[in-house]
Nucleic acid binder design. Sequence first.
DNA 1: GTGAAAGCGCTAACAA
DNA 2: TTGTTAGCGCTTTCAC
Lengths: 347, 347
Amino acid sequence: MVSLDDVAKLAQVSPATVSRALSRPEMVAEATRERILQAARELGYQPNQLARSLRRRSSRTLGLIITDILNPFHATLAKGVQDAAEKHNYTVFLFNTDEDPEKEQRALNALRGHLPQGLLIVPTPKAKENLKLVPKLPTVELDRSSGTPGVRTVMVDNVGGARTAVQHLIELGHRRIGMIVGRLDISTAVERHLGYRETLATAGIPYSEKLVLPGNHREEDGRKAALALLTLPPEERPTALFVGNNEMTVGAVLAVRELGIRIPQELSIVGFDDSRWAATMHPALTVVAQPTYELGFLACETLLSSLSRGQPALPTSIRLDVSFIVRESTAPPDGFTNGLKQQRRKP
Amino acid sequence: MVSLDDVAKLAQVSPATVSRALSRPEMVAEATRERILQAARELGYQPNQLARSLRRRSSRTLGLIITDILNPFHATLAKGVQDAAEKHNYTVFLFNTDEDPEKEQRALNALRGHLPQGLLIVPTPKAKENLKLVPKLPTVELDRSSGTPGVRTVMVDNVGGARTAVQHLIELGHRRIGMIVGRLDISTAVERHLGYRETLATAGIPYSEKLVLPGNHREEDGRKAALALLTLPPEERPTALFVGNNEMTVGAVLAVRELGIRIPQELSIVGFDDSRWAATMHPALTVVAQPTYELGFLACETLLSSLSRGQPALPTSIRLDVSFIVRESTAPPDGFTNGLKQQRRKP
DNA sequence: GTGAAAGCGCTAACAA
DNA sequence: TTGTTAGCGCTTTCAC
């Protein structure tokens, strides 16, 4: 590996000058600087970030911890973070926790040793505890909040998104609206659930525990919950389903197909989080769409700008708006026609 | 940050002994070791990897460069790599090139400074050139090969997969089989194309350039290519389509829908690479499925095992088998009935 | 504007 | 078995 000393020798200056020429060019005479840069180019010199970081006590690296890289939502988040980091010349360490608090803990410990400048994390339910491992590390939580004091969050308007979705179903004439909610120790699930309850309450529809089933955010959980809800006796069976995340929505749709129930004629479905899958399935899914890429990008920008400003940023909480995309999976319930929406049919 | 010296003081030994107790425990007396470990635990000591790596000239980090994290295929690859790396206590730097050789170059340069022990890369077409930036770095290429000498590769049997797919279509009675091939400067595309040609030749079907359109691996390219192929005059129009990657398959299916062509009655489609989307779209897609996760995992294992063995591994090339999943998107061509396959219909 | 020298936190000879 | 010492490659005082 060619080192700074090699460059110094070739350029006939001291190592200190080379360092300056590279890091604070204005402190070096133009001629010398040119000579040094030329030498560096010639040798293909690349600073050893390990040495630099060790000395500077600051590393231009970030940690990114997500819970499920196979979920396109998280992959998109990662891309947003990655792009923002690269824009500012930061390098990112990637960790994937599979929603497992222990993996999160290990990730945090591994990360710690690399002295990253900041952390972007989609917290598991134990994050509040785990984050104590990195007490001084500037942190931004994405998508959900662990409730850790002093930590910034960038999230979407989950309550509003849920409200819009449920309101839409109510306006179509639905009264028995089921919800497949996520784990209630994760803030997104809590908030989406809250939006659901509030909207029902506003419309004067009583909340029924029977119609709300929790799931662990996985496809299979969505499937099971949907199966349970849709095999209730006809007079209790929901006529519409609001599903709390993308993976569970997939499961729910599969369950509906297994049961031979027609969407939207016999059941309306709204999912949370858009995806290609949602847009191209048949019938295309009505969803609450999140600005996922922006979420990641903005979270990273927020973190980096607070770093460059030096002072510890205020523990702000950013909320991004969601949008509601009406496609083909929602319609008035059976025997209820108000002409609001006609389902289309492919040729 | 608590350092090794702090632990040394608390345990009343020299820093060197602490270092040994942590890195080569067998070189330290049991009692001392216990005392040191206890002290380390007490202080929540975490070794500074920067200092350690600088000194050791070796870092327990890996670089992972993929071309499109938004593509589930690549996300799955990343998870495989990640899991294998974590298993061996390696940390990974993630880069995403968007198939852009310049981004690849920047990624490689950034990586270089962090002195990773190895590199896992899905190479862009310019990788052969770019990899010269890291001449000594043990490298494994995933999914495709850049043709760089001395670099190991882990790929799937693209030729075989393509053969199976095309053979399947031929057996169904198709004679005009179109292919949407990827960029021919990417090895996977070349190989899948080769399998296609060979199989046609074996079956005595003449190769027609008109039926083979290139695409840039993106959804939109698949859409355009399909549009072009399917608007050929009826007697030239392919009755079946073999699409070279997952993203382009999505585009092709969308194009088919736009044109109001029915799958599989009027057109059979086979895609390369399975996905949830392929399995749940209607009609479900017949595909060549790849062991994607295993590809990533194995590539990383291969790399790490060569690292631990010390000697520079032989530039081996590993091929994984693909499997062929027949679902609902393939059937005999119009007016050709051989009873091999009946299309199902959802209720 | 430039150089000499010290030191970031750790490990690896070498000595004891 | 343990301690002393030097130094990984870089940056940053402090002199000049």
